Structure formats: structure tokens, C-alpha cells
Amino acid sequence: MEHIVAARASFGYIDPNFPNPDPTDKNNTSIIIYGYTPSITLAAFAAAWFGVHFIIHLVRTIRIRSWWWIPFTVGLVFEIIGYIARSLSAKKNPYNLIYFILNYFFIVVAPVFLAAGIYTILSALIPRVGRRYSFIPPRVILAFFITSDVISTIVQVAGASLVGVKSSRGEDPETANNILLGGLAYQVFVMTCFVILVATFLFRARRVLKEQGLSLFCFVFSVATIMIYLRTCFRLAETAQGLMGELQSNEIYFGCLEFAPVALVVLLFAIWHPGHCVGVVVRVDEKQ
């Protein structure tokens, strides 16, 4: 344990039980950028979890013909690829920069597609129960929130890639980390706006939602929204601490605040599939 603490405290984390298999390989970094050696158990379980739910969501989407839910399913593909890359880091080489970038890129980008599905749910509910219950038109909701997610994700991926490159060269990654932090801060701001919008809509439309038998589904939708929001806040706090901070260098936080919230969301929507609960076809025209 003392060796591990010392390794982290100096310039980064090096696993004394898992030395760099090939220090001369240009794709290998001098430290483990994760801040720990990833758990193969968590990575393999996550890949399997999202794999099973990908099949469930795809089959139900095709059977119901709710094609508007396809982006959520695409997000599950990204999760699977991300955790497969993480499994390779855990089992083969945690120093490999390519594995780290693939892991980070796909796991960070996946929630963009998942969030797009959540934004669409709200946009579908508004015309169904009445435009007067929402402060913003459904078309604007889709355009603004999806565009904002794409922008923030591009910034995050650029920042994360720079962090990996700077760290592999033994250079100060502070500027790159600040770029990543900016993308995450904007994403948290946007998600905060969405959470407030969802809360006000559901409160104002509560009677109509109950009359239409949508109360339970809207509770599931609320939980899913909060879980994605929690995951985004975790990423912001992790990045704000900087490389090798408490949140970034302990995998328990990743498992509980990155994997678990997203895993719960895909489970909830596998049980209460939005295509079945909201409708096969999404209309975003403004019903009064």
C-alpha cells in the first residue's frame, strides 16, 4: 500500500504488481492514467450488462416499431465498446494510451445518445398532455438540448485526449484538464436546466398524466433523468479535482457514480419501454 501511495503522490500511478509490459512502445504511457488498474470484474460485467440490455432494447424497439428510440440503443453500443476497451486495459495493459482513449471516448459519448432519448421522451409527452404545461416548445427542447450535448461532448473528448497525450509525455496536463472541465461544466448547466424543465412540466401536468395512466412511467422518467444528471455531476467533480484526485484515482467512485446510474437507467427503460408507454410515433407539434 505504501508503494501505491508513493507512486500516486510523485507524478502519477504505477501499479507495482502490474509493471509496464513494454516501456519502449510509443502507445504505452509512463503512468496509468486511470489513477488505478481497472477492475476486470467491473469492466467485463458492465460490457455484459449493456450487451444484454442492448438486445432487449433493440428487440422491443423493432417489435413495437418505435424507431425514435434508436438513439438510446446506439448509446448502449457505445457503452459496450467503451467497457470492452476498459477490459483490455484491465487484463492486457493499463498503460496503453489507445485503450484509455477508446474507453474514455465511448463511455463519455454514450450518455449523449441516452440523453437524446430522454429529451425525446419529454418532447413526446408535451404535445400528448398539452403544450400549455411546458414553458418551452417541444421542438426547441430537442434542438437546444441535443445540440448542447454534442458541443459539450466534443469539448470533453478533445480535453480528455489532450490529457492522455500530455500525461504520456510527462507534461503538465492542467490546460487540457481545464478544457475538459469547461465541457463538463457546460453539460452540467444544460442538464440542470433540463431537470428544472422536467420538474415544472411534470408538476403542472400531474393531473392529466394521472388521468392518462402515465404517472408510473413519469416517475421512472424522473428517476432516469436524475441518474444521468448525477453521473454528469460526478464527472464534473472528478475533473475539477484534477489528475490523480480522490474521485479520479479510486475506482469505487467510477463504479457507483458512472456505471451504476447509467446501468439503472437502461434497466428501468427495458422494463418500462418508452415506445410502449409514450407511443410508437413521436409528435412534436404543439397541442393546446
Results as ranks from 00 to 15, higher is better:
Thr232Pro: 00
His273Asp: 11
Leu264Ile: 14
Thr239Ala: 15
Leu247Thr: 07
Phe269Asn: 04
Phe234Val: 12
Phe269Ala: 07
His276Cys: 07
Thr225Arg: 07
Val278Gly: 01
Val284Trp: 15
Tyr253Gln: 05
Val284Glu: 15
Ile252Lys: 03
Ile271Gly: 05
Gly275Tyr: 00
Ile252Asp: 02
Val280His: 02
Gly279Trp: 03
Thr232Trp: 01
Glu238Ser: 14
Gly279Ala: 12
Leu257Ile: 12
Ile252Ala: 07
Leu236Pro: 09
Asp285Cys: 08
Phe269Glu: 04
Val265Tyr: 08
Ile252Trp: 08
Gln248Trp: 07
Thr225Tyr: 08
Ile271Gln: 07
Arg235Trp: 02
Tyr253Thr: 02
His276Gln: 14
Gln248Phe: 06
Glu251Tyr: 09
Arg231Tyr: 07
Thr225Gln: 09
Thr225Met: 11
Cys277Ala: 08
Ile228Gln: 09
Val262Pro: 01
Trp272Pro: 00
Ile271Cys: 09
Ile228Pro: 01
Leu236Cys: 13
Leu236Tyr: 12
Val282Ile: 14
Glu258Ser: 10
Glu238Gln: 15
Cys233His: 00
Val280Lys: 10
Gly275Pro: 01
Leu247His: 06
Leu267Arg: 01
Pro274Thr: 02
Ile226Asp: 05
Val266Phe: 13
Thr225Val: 14
Thr239Lys: 07
Pro261Asn: 12
Leu243Tyr: 04
Thr225Ser: 14
Val281Glu: 04
Thr232His: 02
Leu230Val: 15
Leu267His: 03
Ile252Phe: 06
Val278Asn: 01
Pro261Val: 13
Phe259Gln: 03
Thr225Glu: 12
Arg283Pro: 03
Phe259Asp: 00
Gly279His: 09
Asp285Arg: 13
Val280Cys: 03
His276Tyr: 10
Met227Lys: 11
His273Pro: 05
Gly255Tyr: 10
Val280Leu: 04
Gly255Pro: 06
Val280Pro: 00
Gly275Arg: 00
Arg283Asp: 15
Arg283Glu: 11
Asp285Thr: 14
Thr232Asn: 08
Cys256Gly: 02
His273Met: 08
Ala260Asn: 04
Arg231Pro: 01
Ser249Asp: 12
Leu257Asn: 06
Gly242Asp: 09
Ile226Cys: 09
Cys277Ser: 05
Val266Trp: 10
Val266Glu: 13
Val262Arg: 06
Asn250Lys: 15
Glu258Tyr: 02
Tyr229Gln: 05
Phe269Thr: 05
Glu258Arg: 06
Glu246Cys: 02
Gly275Cys: 04
Gly255Ala: 15
Arg235Asp: 02
Leu268Gly: 02
Asn250Phe: 12
Leu267Phe: 11
Leu230Asp: 05
Leu257Pro: 06
Arg235Ile: 02
Trp272Phe: 05
Gly242Ile: 04
Leu267Lys: 01
Glu238Ile: 10
Arg235Ala: 08
Tyr229Leu: 09
Tyr253His: 11
His276Asp: 12
Leu267Ala: 11
Asp285Phe: 12
Arg235Tyr: 03
Ile271Pro: 01
Ile228Phe: 09
Leu268Phe: 11
Thr225Pro: 07
Ile228Gly: 05
Val280Asn: 03
Thr225His: 09
